[in-house]
């Protein structure tokens, strides 16, 4: 449950960097994503077409504060987004580092505290830091979105053990891997580890065939989730024969 909303698709899709509005529409449809992320910007040439796509897609909108580097910028952007999209949901990004685009944990926490206090339902883009996660929850966040790897890098889950710890540490909090996913196998792994959803953009938008890649991610996310629910076997260091020895012929 994401702030009381149950989603049947656990893939959330970004809407940037597609080669054309048509391809974006096809990718949204193929992904089966119920949640798509958008930004607020000075209107460019394709602004009207983009609004039409959002309307036609009919998906739940998760506006972001991408590009914001300060509390004030992020909070103001969130206010503007709430009015424009009519949703309390906000993907809160407060960027702290130009090369890694990792969040500024101090500004993130302060902005989260302000926005939660104003009734926003905050989806904070964070790291796998457990203490920061706890502080964000104390601030009122009911979802955490740790990065898999730097935004747009396609490196997948760069700190798998850290992300496992995070999953174990926050059993009751919906956790979404946001950023860094490059391949469906990485998304499947996140879901197998018990993550509740995966949010990605570049891996689909920059694929040779974005709609086909969106479908591949949808399948991977569904498979990973089904595997987690089915209960994965424990890992072993040594082999353990699966075929019984009992009844084997003496052929030596």
């Amino acid at each position: 449950m994401f702030y009381g909303t149950d989603l049947s698709s656990r893939l959330m899709l970004g809407t940037a960097q597609y080669p054309s509005p048509q391809v974006l529409s096809q990718a949204i449809a193929a992904s089966g994503a119920e949640v798509i992320t958008v930004s607020l910007r000075r209107e460019g040439r394709e602004g009207g077409a983009f609004r039409d796509i959002l309307k036609a897609a009919g998906r739940r909108i998760l506006p972001n504060t991408a590009g914001c580097h300060s509390v004030k910028e992020a909070v103001t952007t969130a206010h503007m987004a709430r009015e424009l999209f009519g949703t309390p949901w906000i993907k809160l990004e407060v960027i702290g580092h130009a090369d890694t685009l990792q969040p500024d944990p101090f500004a993130l926490l302060e902005a989260a505290r302000i926005l939660c206090g104003e009734g926003f339902e905050v989806f904070p883009y964070t790291t796998e830091d457990l203490v920061l996660g706890e502080r964000l929850i104390e601030a009122g966040c009911r979802v955490l979105m740790p990065w898999g790897a730097p935004i747009g890098s396609g490196q997948g889950l760069r700190n798998i053990e850290g992300l496992r710890s995070m999953r174990a540490h926050f059993p009751g909090i919906p956790l979404v891997i946001d950023a860094g996913i490059g391949a469906p196998s990485q998304a499947a792994l996140a879901m197998e580890m018990g993550y509740d959803a995966v949010l990605l953009n570049t891996a689909v938008a920059r694929a040779l065939d974005p709609a086909a890649m969106a479908r591949a991610f949808a399948d991977a996310v569904a498979a990973g989730r089904a595997a987690h629910r089915a209960g994965l076997m424990p890992r072993r260091d040594m082999a353990a024969a699966s075929t019984p020895v009992f009844g084997m012929a003496d052929l030596a």
């Binding site: 930004s39 607020l40 910007r41 991408a66």
Partner: peptide, 10 residues
Amino acid sequence: VEILSPMQGG
């Protein structure tokens, strides 16, 4: 003045 619109985002 800033006048902002919904645009593509990740």
